[in-house]
């Protein structure tokens, strides 16, 4: 089942002016439900633009976008309801918190959907639980929270709309390693529990390698590659052509391979790499 699908989508910035720029060129991808897709690519490769095209913040110049099988631009007046179905979490989402309490802030999205109080209450509490926010924090001002908690509260505000597809732009940017890991784990358990698609834009190859099922590689506004994570990192040569690196462990294995050790180079998580290297020492006994 796909949650969102793009067909030959292009987007042109400042059309008809000297500053005209094609930011997204002829992109066709489909995001599966219950899967985490990572989007990687250089700054300016069109990742963030793509995210805003899916939830209708930017109007596509060419092509079609389907969310839940519905062409989102078929009825322009309904574009707001599309956004409830496509949750978009921007970079540094904690900077958009504004309400008096965390509870009210998380309730902002559901309230805009026109739900009744009971429903909103349920959604806020589930969302808070989902992102691992303690219920005691809900009555606090969002500005009293720590950085990581603010990030969670902001993500909860989007999750509370229970979108079919959740898109996050650099969800772990600026967090310490522990905060990073817990946000990523939270996302992957959210994806498994809710059955929604999770799409994550990231610069961290390690995060992508560890948590994503599929990878979309963007280059200069075009789809460079779209497939499973192992396929993506198996082609380290092609990735480095467009200036992207494979995860560090994969690089270690590639170097080992060059030195004449017999290791697979399509491994991209630390755990698998450990096993592969242990094989070299004869059958995986721990030392």
């Amino acid at each position: 089942m796909t949650s969102a699908e793009l067909k030959n989508v292009s987007y042109i910035y400042s059309r008809g002016t000297p500053f005209e720029k094609k930011a997204v060129k002829n992109v066709s991808v489909a995001f599966e439900k219950g899967k985490i897709t990572g989007i990687i690519g250089h700054t300016g490769s069109g990742k963030s633009t793509l995210a805003q095209l899916i939830n209708g913040l930017l109007e596509i110049s060419e092509g079609e976008v389907f969310v839940d099988g519905q062409n989102i631009w078929e009825n322009k007046k309904n574009i707001r309801s599309v956004r409830f179905n496509v949750g978009l979490v921007f970079q540094y989402p904690e900077y958009q918190l504004f309400e008096e309490t965390v509870y009210k802030d998380i309730a902002f999205g559901p309230k805009n959907m026109g739900l009744d109080e009971g429903d909103i209450d349920k959604r806020v509490k589930t969302a808070a639980k989902e992102v691992g926010l303690d219920e005691a924090l809900l009555d606090k001002s969002p500005f009293e929270l720590s950085g990581g908690q603010k990030r969670r509260a902001a993500i909860a505000g989007v999750i509370a709309m229970q979108p079919e597809i959740l898109i996050l732009d650099e969800p772990a940017a600026g967090l310490d390693p522990r905060g990073r890991e817990s946000i990523m784990k939270m996302l992957s358990s959210y994806c498994a529990e809710s059955g929604a698609s999770v799409v994550m834009i990231s610069h961290s190859m390690e995060d992508i390698a560890q948590y994503c099922d599929d990878i979309l590689v963007m280059n200069k506004g075009e789809v460079f590659f779209f497939g499973t994570t192992s396929e993506a990192f198996a082609m380290s040569g092609r990735l480095s052509l467009i200036g992207l690196a494979v995860p560090q462990v994969t690089r270690v294995l590639i170097e080992l391979n060059k030195l004449g050790f017999d290791v697979s180079t399509s491994i991209y998580t630390v755990d698998d790499a450990v096993k592969e290297i242990e094989k070299l020492f004869g059958g995986g006994e721990k030392c």
Binding site: Q52, N55, L57, R80, R83, F84, G87, L88, V89, F90, P93, Y95, Q96, F108, G109, N112, M113, G157, V158, M161
Partner: peptide, 13 residues
């Protein structure tokens, strides 16, 4: 512009 886009994504009108 960024904040507006973010709030629009949460259904702000």
């Amino acid at each position: 512009n960024k904040i507006m886009a973010a709030q629009k994504s949460r259904g702000a009108d």
